Amino acid sequence: MYIAKEESFGPIMIVSVFEDVQSQADIEKLVARANDTEFALASGVFTRDISKALLVSEKINAGTCFINCYNKTDVAAPFGGFKQSGFGKDLGAEALNEYLKTKTVTVEY
């Protein structure tokens, strides 16, 4: 659906229900469906199985992944997206890199 592939800001949330994921192939299909968008600011995984939640959150291509909650942030945690949502990070030590330039100088004498 169009709304599931766009990056909308406002009081909306896309909820996709999946059948019980049993096999690695099921997980790969689930992750492919979740990653089928050009935007990737945040995602969420709701499940009773924490090992599956951690596996899926690792494979989902989004800047933030919430497990069994949503939009709970900490000022020390970097926030920002990937893909077309990836224009740097806010918050945390990672945000300081937006103000820095890394330069390498190699000297042989």
Rank of each mutant, 00 (worst) to 15 (best):
M1R: 09
Y2C: 13
I3W: 11
I3G: 07
A4T: 12
S8W: 05
S8M: 12
G10E: 15
P11M: 10
P11Q: 13
I12M: 04
V15W: 00
S16D: 15
F18E: 10
F18T: 10
E19D: 14
E19H: 11
V21C: 15
V21A: 08
V21D: 03
S23E: 05
D26F: 11
I27H: 06
I27A: 12
E28N: 15
K29V: 08
K29Q: 13
L30R: 05
L30T: 12
V31T: 03
V31A: 05
A34T: 07
N35F: 05
T37N: 06
T37Y: 07
T37G: 03
E38K: 14
E38G: 10
F39Q: 08
F39P: 01
S43I: 04
S43N: 00
S43K: 03
G44M: 05
G44F: 00
V45W: 05
F46D: 07
F46W: 15
F46M: 09
T47W: 02
D49H: 13
I50C: 07
K52E: 01
S57L: 02
S57E: 04
S57G: 06
S57P: 02
E58H: 13
A62V: 07
A62F: 06
C69M: 09
Y70Q: 04
N71C: 08
K72Q: 13
T73M: 15
T73R: 14
T73Q: 15
D74G: 07
D74I: 10
A76K: 06
A77P: 01
G80Y: 10
G81P: 00
F82G: 00
F82C: 01
K83C: 01
K83L: 03
Q84A: 15
Q84F: 14
G86F: 01
G86H: 04
F87A: 02
F87K: 04
G88F: 10
G88I: 06
A93F: 02
E94K: 01
E94W: 01
A95T: 11
Y99P: 10
L100I: 11
L100M: 12
L100R: 09
T102M: 08
T104L: 12
T104R: 04
V105E: 03
Y109M: 13
Y109T: 10
Y109P: 06
